[in-house]
Amino acid sequence: MARTGLYKSEIKIARDALLAQGKHPSVDAVRIALGNTGSKSTIHKYLKELEQEDGGIDASKPSISDALQDLVARLAAGLQQEADAQIEAAQTRYDAASAQQRADKDALQQANQMLTTQLEAVRTELLAQTAAHARLATQLQEESTLRLTLDTQLTALKERLAEHEQHRASLEEKHQHAREALEHYRAATRDQRDQDVRRHEQQVQTLQAEIRQLRQDLIIRNEDITRSNQEGVRMVTELSHARQALLEEQTRGRAQEDQLAQLRQVESQKQRLEQQLREQATASEQLAARHGALEENCRRMEAQWHQSQLALAAAVARSEAQETLAAQLREFLHHTTAHQEAPAGEQGIPDGTRGASDS
């Protein structure tokens, strides 16, 4: 059990014994000599008093521990100052690098946002151009169908026109034959009448006696003339019918000419449609070229966006690596400072003040 107190005489005896043994009378050594009893502060106080009573012989000499403590304190202060300077410089570099990384990150994010917006705009325009191209393709298909229908109708109308032309030519030929026959009949009748008149005059001049016979002949001739007139009337009637048929054919010919004019209008409309088709084909080719250019621009923007994403990821990785390195540096400097300060703190405390109470 520990003793309740120590006396100055006991401390002096233990100190002298240690000095006689050639040992340094430290607080711990005196306490050990006393059987590990007593407070270190009390032992330290009595040792100081004994040193003062001895005339301060040892006081004029600085102890080795004090010199070491002073040296360690100066080294610690220098190391602390140097460490603070290094930490401050590292912190400054880290702050500058962090600010630059944040600025680069913000710039890359802005560029990424801009590229994303442009990409969306290009995609929207591409969808619009694709829809327009589909509409033009549908319209082109409809125009092609209409063109085939018009071509079919035009072919049928041309065939009907050829038939009408053939029929009209046949009627014209019949009408020409009728006119020729009529002219031939008129010439024959005229010749016949001339011959009859000449014969009649000769008979009147030379054959007065044969008037009765001539009258009978005249009656016969009159009957022939009557028949001829009837034949002429019939021929006139046929000519009238032929003229009526000619008028009807001319009417049909005018109708056919109207149809031909309509066909020409259809042909003109066909040519306009073909021009529109060519223009639409040209527009389709231009749209296809623009579509290809937009797709190329879209791929280029996607590549730029991918590169910006890679650059952003690299910048974030560098920033994280720098933050990790800065944290490791701070931890290293903290441990170094703590390691440097620990011995200085332990040596700066006198041996006699380490214990607070008797055991």
Score class of each variant (00 low, 15 high):
Leu150Trp: 13
Glu172Lys: 01
Gln304Leu: 13
Lys12Asn: 12
Tyr7Arg: 15
Glu223Ser: 14
Ala33Phe: 00
Leu19Thr: 14
Ala338Pro: 00
Gln309Asp: 07
Arg199Gly: 00
Ala29Lys: 07
Pro25Gln: 00
Gln275Tyr: 06
Gln213Trp: 03
Thr152Cys: 05
Tyr7Thr: 13
Ser357Lys: 12
Gln80Pro: 07
Glu341Phe: 08
Lys61Phe: 12
Asp70Phe: 04
Arg252Met: 08
Ala103Asp: 12
His164Ile: 13
Ala132Arg: 06
Gln244Met: 13
Ala338Ile: 01
Asp58Leu: 13
Leu140Ile: 02
Thr337His: 11
Glu279Ala: 12
Glu210Ile: 04
Ala327Met: 08
Leu18Pro: 01
Ala73Arg: 11
Val266Lys: 08
Thr152Asp: 15
Ala73Glu: 08
Ser228Gly: 14
Met301Gly: 10
Leu47Trp: 01
Asn297Leu: 07
Gln153Thr: 09
Ala327Asn: 02
His44Leu: 09
Ala67Gln: 15
Arg179Tyr: 05
Ala356Lys: 05
Glu173Ser: 11
Glu143Arg: 01
Leu325Lys: 02
Lys8Gln: 15
Ala77Met: 14
Thr206His: 14
Ser41Phe: 07
Gln192Trp: 02
Leu126His: 07
Arg186Ser: 13
Ser26Ile: 05
Ser308Glu: 06
Glu159Phe: 04
Gly352Arg: 05
Ala313Val: 07
Thr149Ser: 01
Glu49Tyr: 05
Lys45Arg: 15
Arg278Glu: 08
Ala178Thr: 02
Ala338Trp: 03
Ser98Tyr: 10
Arg190Thr: 15
Gln276Gly: 06
Ser170Thr: 02
Arg300Cys: 10
Ala255Tyr: 03
Arg3Asn: 04
Leu34Thr: 06
Thr117Gly: 12
Gly78Tyr: 07
Ser240Ile: 08
Gly35Leu: 04
Glu248Ile: 13
Glu53Ser: 15
Arg15Val: 02
Arg199Met: 04
Glu331Trp: 04
Arg74Phe: 05
Gly232Phe: 15
Thr130Tyr: 06
Thr149Glu: 13
Leu207Ile: 07
Glu274Asp: 11
